[in-house]
Design a protein around this nucleic acid. Structure first.
Lengths: 330, 330
DNA sequence: TTGTAAGCGTTATCAA
DNA sequence: TTGATAACGCTTACAA
């Protein structure tokens, strides 16, 4: 592939002039610039990214480490990140940690080695990824989940409050034995939603005992948990489900048991999705501002990369309940 | 950040020895290697990726250019790609073209500049991205859609055949006025599904006239198309929908009109999704082997990167019809 | 305004 | 087995 010196030779100038011309410096004679551009074009010249990055000691790349590309919540985040990054001339590398701390560590290593400009991290587990990055002067912004040990810029949803609100909503609709299906212990969003559920129970003056199950945040794993919950001697008459994928399993389980959401069992699930209005009755959800979370986090990160050293911030966006038929009075 | 020479100094050896030790060359004294590793560890040394890439004239990075990260079909592909790439020590950069040829061109430029090892491309429009990449010796594998002008390694689904099969299925179920909602003209998967639909009509001896609408492959755009199709003087009694997102709009439209899938109107849509079994009746789908497509394409690409110069191949995987309630006899 | 040349951090060649 | 050194392709003082 053509190099800058080949372009220089062809245009009859020095490599310095080629560099200046191609980077649009104004201190270059228009005639020369024209010759350079023509030569570069004829040779199909593309500046060598690694060489440029090495010399400039910086790369216009952000890494986004999430736990599941197949989760619409995270893809919406990635949209927000990408739109903002792209406008600022940055590329985004999407990394799947699968909620596995080892995989996360691996990606952090790659980010460090490749000298990415910054990292957006939805932390898996209680690792020290953020510290490691910061120890090497790589700005980090946590997204969706707070950083386990340290502080640092963070973009969250007030998921506990939203869970409380959803729980209260179910109580107001007349449900009395409220259950909760949430994610793995230790995952903050899972624990917060559970805490919010308990807040709601308390506020409503209900005491269901422990009608709680945990699962991974995926449909397959949630199936068993849903069945187990519904097989209680005194099964719940309503369920708060901590994400969309698990909601599929809950609804499937109800269907198998011949129970109807919004009549036999109230259901509210986290994350809105196009299909939620297609089922009968439509699914009540807690809608999270995923796109905005991504956009906000990216903006924050770009600020840090740009040298913003003001105090770290925690941005908490709010989710909102979208009541539909599945949580109507039972 | 620590450099190789600082490690060398600390370990009391030359940079060459550090490099060899860190890269596990066997021609290095175990004692020295130990000192080097210790020094590297103490300094928190991470090899500088750009420098290494520059020197080695290669990067262990693949670019995957797709049209929509929010489409589960493509995220499943990306899973397949990532799993294979990861096992081979490669990273994957996910790029969203939004089905916009300009954005695609932009990402191809970035891929070229960054000297990625290879590109997996689901081409948007009739551009010359693949030629451009190949002109610069960057291997390309097309995925989901053939390359517009040139040949080249390609991983496809026999989507036309699948569409034909789905159409025949609807005919067999007794539907007589079959409509089709497909994607934009020029997008091969959209055109192929339409062609397969016509194949099916012909094979079934049906002539619906033109009960065809096009939309982007997204839910919002498809809403209008769905309504327009159902507002025909002689509306279809069954619809083949070319993807999952558009199916949501079709089902919503039917619901608004008080029509029931599988009774008033038969429906088959491309792409399976967890929620398709939750609706009543469950949605009949054409399931595509998305994960396998990604894995296969990545394997092919890695082969080319590794110097495989055998003739280019076209791999055609097959989709299969999953008949459910929405296409039962009307 | 242009050119010369140093240097970014590696790896690989060549001698020792 | 180890070390000195050139080279990868670019940007940027500094000189002219």
């Amino acid at each position: 592939m053509a190099t800058i010196s080949e372009v220089a030779e062809r245009a009859g100038v020095s490599t310095a002039t080629v560099s200046r011309a191609l980077n649009g410096k104004d201190s270059v004679d228009p005639a020369l610039a024209g010759r350079v551009l023509a030569a570069a074009d004829e040779l199909g010249y593309r500046p060598n990214g690694p060489a440029r990055n090495l010399r400039k000691q910086e790369t216009a790349v952000l890494a986004l480490i999430i736990s599941d590309v197949e989760n619409p919540f995270f893809t919406a985040i990635s949209r927000g990140v990408e739109d903002v990054a792209h406008d600022a001339g940055y590329s985004v590398v999407l990394c799947n940690s699968d909620d596995d701390p080892d995989k996360e560590r691996e990606y952090v290593e790659v980010a460090l080695q490749e000298r990415v400009a910054g990292v957006l991290l939805s932390p898996a587990g209680r690792g020290d990824s953020a510290e490691k990055l910061r120890a090497h002067d790589t700005p980090v912004v946590a997204i969706d989940r707070p950083l386990p040990r340290s502080g640092g810029d963070t973009v969250l949803v007030d998921t506990r409050l939203a869970a409380r609100e959803a729980t209260l909503h179910l109580a107001e609709q007349g449900y009395r034995r409220l259950g909760c299906l949430t994610g793995p212990e230790g995952v903050p969003t899972a624990d917060d939603r559970l805490a919010g559920y308990r807040d709601g129970l308390r506020a409503a003056g209900l005491d269901s005992g422990e009608l709680v199950r945990r699962s991974d945040f995926k449909a397959t794993g949630a199936a068993e948990a849903a069945h187990s919950l519904l097989a209680e001697r005194q099964p719940p008459d309503a369920i708060l489900v901590a994400n969309n994928a698990m909601a599929v399993s809950v609804l499937a389980a109800l269907d198998e048991l011949g129970m109807r959401p919004g009549r036999d069992v109230g259901v509210v699930a986290f994350d809105d999705a196009p299909w939620t209005v297609l089922i009968d009755p439509p699914l009540s959800v807690v809608a999270q501002p995923a796109y905005d979370m991504g956009a906000t986090a990216a903006q924050l990160l770009l600020g840090r990369i740009g040298g913003d050293h003001t105090e770290t911030t925690v941005t908490t966006l709010s989710a909102h309940l979208v009541p539909r038929g599945s949580s109507r009075s039972g």
